[in-house]
Amino acid sequence: MTSLHVIVSIVLVIAVAACDLPGRPTQAERRVRPDRVLDGAALFESHCRGCHGEPGRLAPVRDLGDPVFLAVIGEGELRRVVSDGVAGTPMPVFSSAGGGPLTEAQIAALADSIFARWATPKAFESVTLPPYSEADARRAGAQPGDSERGLAVWKDYCAECHGPTGEGGGGALRLDQGSFLALTSDQGLRSIVIAGRPELGMPSWREHEGKPPLTVQQISDVVAWLASLRRPFPGRPHSSGDLAAGAP
């Protein structure tokens, strides 16, 4: 063991140790241009969870980890909604073509990752899912939604929690407020009727206790009834009609 050996081995030990030193930059720390981030999970964290929250947790809007919703909407439609947003609601446009922050490839990666992580297609193989949109329902042979028939469905399925005409039980769950309806699209109402909001205790179309699942027609009808509650000038308590109704 000469001193040369000692020096060489020390240098080797340092060189090997240096490969795993905590300060060594990892590829994960490498800064990527924001429009080149293609990690769907990272995109979800930076763009979605502010409103949609983490899967299974309470959040202002729909939990994107809900497998029923994912099965109903399908990946293509989810991509479209992310790209184009939903006009009039808090869901913004995300595609760079529309002025948003994400490229087409990023939106695809985001949708892929949402479906890869939280969708459970096998669980729905034997389930007949209601059509996602009113247009799909029409194509499947349903008649256009009718608010009068919808009121009957409402009384049967929804009134227990939301009140006989949507004014709520104790105010907590009232749906007839003009501002709520103004900020929720027809499709948004329909998605809630179909997939529910499990994290809030709202059942899906087939989980109403002691009742058969809602039919395709019933879904269209009850959404039509809810849409009929929309007001011409929502959110303005000064307009006499709303003031009289007491529900801005």
């Binding site: 409103c51 947790r57 609601t89 808090p90 900020l183």
Partner: peptide
Amino acid sequence: WNGLPLPESAVAGRSPLQLVGAAVFQN
């Protein structure tokens, strides 16, 4: 606004109108 989830205490037990208000707050 889009990266930080709201604390659950700010969402729990809120009405549909209040929830959509929370979404407006983030948006």
